[in-house]
């Protein structure tokens, strides 16, 4: 039986001391120890994207990241985007465009698109950019059309109301 290891994870801006008794994925720790269930387990192979989180601002698969490697990194889950103006615009657009069906993939898609829309400075992502950005997020319900439309709507909203974003 291996020794237990203590690590400190920074998740959504808060430090959490976590005891690991075996090598655990970030996804397991988020869901089962920190009870942050917005991050979903879809495939556990890094294919479906339902577990997408931001690590140091970049989207990453929580099912492929070892929790032990995430000490000192800035982990943000979908719960951590509750007050994020880009995410809020996205949620609004996803709901209005009909981009949400069963919803199991949606938190991961929200996180992935938040990164894309945040980093748009200058170059506005095209429809094709959005489609290809979503290549790592499988949705089995929508056929993606309304999700891509929602991302475009959110972009428009953010461009029309840029102040909201800066105030955050």
């Amino acid at each position: 039986m291996s020794e237990k290891t203590a690590i400190v994870l920074t998740v959504n801006g808060q430090d959490h001391a976590v005891l690991l008794d075996r090598p655990s994925t970030l996804l397991d720790v988020l869901r089962h120890q920190l009870h942050l269930t917005g991050t979903k387990q879809g495939c556990n192979y890094g294919v479906c994207g339902a577990c997408t989180v931001l690590i140091d601002g970049k989207s990453a698969r929580a099912c492929l990241a070892l929790a032990g490697d995430c000490g000192g990194r800035d982990v943000v889950t979908v719960e951590g985007l509750a007050d994020d103006p880009v995410a809020i615009a996205l949620y609004e657009a996803l709901v209005a465009a009909g981009g949400v069906q069963c919803g199991f993939c949606t938190p991961g898609i929200s996180v992935a698109l938040t990164e894309l829309l945040r980093e748009r400075d200058g170059d506005r992502p095209t429809r094709d950019d959005i489609r290809h950005w979503l290549g790592g997020n499988i949705c089995r319900c929508t056929g993606y059309v309304k999700i891509v439309e929602a991302a475009e709507w959110a972009l428009e909203m953010l461009e029309t109301h840029p102040i909201a974003e800066e105030s955050a």
Binding site: V78, V95, G103, T106
Partner: peptide, 11 residues
């Protein structure tokens, strides 16, 4: 709007 979409989108 669907009743459940906002909860689903935000996890």
């Amino acid at each position: 709007r669907r009743r459940d979409s906002a909860d689903k989108a935000s996890g």
